[in-house]
Each structure stands twice: as structure tokens, then as C-alpha cells.
């Protein structure tokens, strides 16, 4: 299922996302109160390791930030970190996830090249593959197409729709058309609070776009 969070800039969409994977803990002046439940477990006060909690959530940022290593290792990084060393198995997994994001054919001959040489659109798909490789349940995406050209954006959106069978996807966007195209469930945020929520079909039927345009202006 795809949940889309929309709202004007500065309303707290990104901060909310960063609470989910506990990235807020990196910022000294940020403080979280309350509870966040995933599968009946409060992840903020869990005994589990933060690294394990974060691993269950793939992250896609506004712009692609490939790790400073080659294409292959970008995808294998998370697997290696969690202790998988078998080379043949690693290679298979890397191929598998690169295929899922539709990148395999484009990069299979240049796996040893630095990831920074790919185009921005390819990099973003690489980042998606990298996130999928550690086998998350949830994908968090923060305006994942805002830096991309229309064609690359379309590919990413397409991938999300393919992936929603197997993953819970949460996307932050300020693009209403995009929300309409891919959302199953919509959260509207304004000034740090959820002002509206509901299934996409319902909300868009009752004139969400007109209401949102008012908020944006």
C-alpha cells in the first residue's frame, strides 16, 4: 500500500519521516515525545538495536546520494554490513535488486564504476535498489522525484506501484498530481499537524485538490 503525505513546505513532513526511522536522534536540538508503533512494537522505546530498526525501513531521499563506492558495492553495502560474505550469493542478490528497479541491463557491464558516474535518474533507482537489498518492510521516500526529470520520475513512480504489493510505502510529496496518481491513502499535514486523512479515492472525490491549493497559496 502507498501512503502519501502531502502538505506545504515547512509543515513537518520530512521531520515526521525522520521520526519513523529515528534519524531525528542525529539532531541535538530535536526531541521526540510519544510513541510510534510498527507491528505492535513501540520503535522509539524498543530494546532492539537502532540499526536493526532502521534496517526495516528503506530510505529514499530528495536527491540521490550514492555511497562513495562502485555500483556493485552500493547495493552490496547493506548486505555486507549485516555480515553476509558469500560472494556468489551477494552477486545474485545484487543482480536481483538491480533487476527489480530496472537498472540491471543498463549497468551490468560497469558494476565496478563509481556510482557517481550514473545519471541522476539512474542514481535514484540505484538508491532504491540499495534500500531494497537489506530486505525492509517499509519504504520511506522523501520527495523522491523532486530532483529528477519527468521521464525518470515516471519510472520511479512506476516502480513504487509495482513494489506496493510487497512493501508498505510512505511517500512525502508536495506534488498533488503525483499524489493523485499513486496514492492509496493520503495524510494531509499542515503546520505540524495532520489536518485530514483518508483513502485517496474518497479525498480526491471530495475536492482535496481545491482545498490543498488554498493551503498552498
Amino acid at each position: 500500500m502507498i501512503t502519501v503525505i502531502i502538505g506545504p513546505s515547512g509543515c513537518g513532513k520530512t521531520s515526521f519521516l525522520k521520526c519513523l526511522n529515528r534519524m531525528v536522534e542525529l539532531y541535538e536540538d530535536a526531541k521526540i515525545t510519544g510513541k510510534i508503533f510498527i507491528n505492535n512494537e513501540d520503535i522509539l522505546h524498543s530494546n532492539d538495536d537502532v540499526a536493526n530498526i532502521r534496517k526495516k525501513m528503506g530510505l529514499l531521499a530528495q536527491r540521490p546520494y550514492p555511497l562513495p563506492m562502485n555500483i556493485y558495492n552500493n547495493v552490496a553495502y547493506g548486505l555486507k554490513i549485516s555480515g553476509r560474505k558469500n560472494k556468489a550469493m551477494l552477486y545474485k542478490r545484487v543482480e536481483h535488486y538491480l533487476r527489480i528497479v530496472g537498472l540491471w541491463e543498463e549497468v551490468k557491464d560497469r558494476l565496478k564504476e563509481p556510482a557517481s558516474r550514473l545519471s541522476i535518474g539512474q542514481q535514484q533507482r540505484l538508491c532504491l535498489a540499495r534500500g531494497l537489498a537489506v530486505d525492509p518492510n517499509i519504504i520511506l521516500a522523501d520527495e523522491p522525484t523532486s530532483a529528477l526529470d519527468p521521464l525518470s520520475s515516471q519510472i520511479i513512480e512506476q516502480k513504487f506501484i509495482e513494489l506496493k504489493k510487497n512493501y508498505t510505502i510512505i511517500i512525502v510529496t508536495h506534488n498533488l498530481q503525483q499524489a493523485k496518481r499513486i496514492a492509496d491513502y493520503v495524510l494531509v499535514m499542515n503546520q505540524g499537524e495532520i489536518s485530514e486523512e483518508g483513502t485517496a479515492s474518497e479525498l480526491f472525490k471530495t475536492g482535496l485538490i481545491q482545498r490543498m491549493e488554498k493551503i498552498f497559496t
Binding site: 542525529l26 532502521r54 534496517k55 555511497l67 554490513i81
Partner: peptide
């Protein structure tokens, strides 16, 4: 960029591993 650190952390790396490898 902070996002690079976040990317590595979200893949299950510890802070020290992020420093070492990224």
C-alpha cells in the same frame, strides 16, 4: 552531506561503520 550519513544508517550500519566505510 548529512543525507549520505542517513543513507548508510538506514541500511543498518552503525554510526562507526558509517564513518569507516562512507
Amino acid at each position: 552531506p548529512e543525507e549520505l550519513t542517513e543513507a548508510s544508517l538506514s541500511l543498518g550500519a552503525t554510526h562507526w561503520e558509517t564513518i569507516k566505510y562512507v
